[in-house]
Amino acid sequence: MTVSTQRIPPQTGAGFELRRGDVLVVIDPQGEQVADLMAFAAEGREEWLSSGRTFDYNETIYLTTGHVLYSNRSRPMFTLLRDDVGQHDFLLTPCSTETFEILYPPGTAEGHPSCFGNLVAAFAPYGIAPDQIPTTLNIFMNVRVDERGRVVIAPPLSRAGQRLELRAEMDLVVGLTACSAEGSNNGTFKPIDYQIIRGQDRG
């Protein structure tokens, strides 16, 4: 079986569809690069990947192999099949123009690509509006929470070629980015690769 690899260039995004049983493989080809992922049910855009439901039902904020990711309607959306890194974030929203205005030096926001903007573009052909995009699963993002609840963003732990594999548990519309925030990617911008292994091709 030959599976093609698609590349998302630095600071851009892509939108695509998955069928139930398909496996999405997200690969960090060069290391220390975050990928923001969001998904909506193909049958209705009112159902989306939910960080709150996922944390609640897994009883942890640190998601890895074997965990199930749930929708806002408490239905399984993905199962994590393989996790080479073991550190991802589902607390923080995708970076936006406002992120750079508020958290970065003055003037940074002007013309700066963002994951939110890239997801808006990726989802537009599917009729998904900007206000429908919630907190994303930030693959490979290294967010630590201290004993006082303070959030610290550290360099990603991912090395070149490491991956996260997610099996779709329903038909989905998916947006995926190569993150645009300097602070999340150790100061550099690199591509993200992905593969789609169709359910009927597995075995």
Results as ranks from 00 to 15, higher is better:
Q6T: 09
R144L: 14
D22L: 00
P134I: 04
L172S: 03
T108Q: 15
G15R: 06
F140R: 14
R20H: 01
A160H: 08
I133D: 08
R167T: 02
C115I: 14
D89R: 08
I153G: 12
V23H: 00
V152A: 15
I128G: 05
S96Y: 09
I153F: 11
L49C: 01
T79Q: 10
E147H: 13
V151W: 07
A124M: 11
Y70S: 01
G149W: 04
G52N: 06
R202S: 11
M1G: 10
R202A: 12
V152E: 15
F123H: 11
L92T: 12
T65M: 06
T135Y: 11
M170V: 05
P9C: 02
L166I: 03
L176V: 03
E169P: 00
I197S: 00
N58G: 02
A124Q: 13
Q195K: 11
D56C: 09
Q200M: 07
L172R: 00
G52C: 03
Y70K: 01
R198G: 03
D201S: 12
F40D: 00
F116I: 01
R45S: 07
L164A: 02
L119A: 12
V85I: 04
V68L: 03
R202G: 06
R148Q: 12
H112P: 10
A160Q: 08
V143S: 12
T64G: 04
I139L: 12
A121P: 04
I139V: 15
E98Y: 13
F116V: 03
S50C: 08
Q11W: 01
L63M: 09
Q162S: 00
G52T: 07
R150P: 05
L49W: 03
G175F: 01
G31W: 07
R167M: 11
G21N: 00
Y70W: 09
G183S: 12
Q33L: 09
H67G: 01
P29E: 11
F40I: 01
L103V: 15
E182Y: 14
Q195A: 02
M38D: 08
Y194N: 13
W48M: 04
A109N: 05
I102C: 11
K190P: 06
T97N: 13
V120T: 13
G149P: 07
A41N: 08
E147P: 00
L37Q: 04
V173T: 11
Y57S: 02
L80K: 01
G183E: 10
I61K: 02
V23L: 00
D89V: 08
T65K: 14
Y104T: 15
V34F: 05
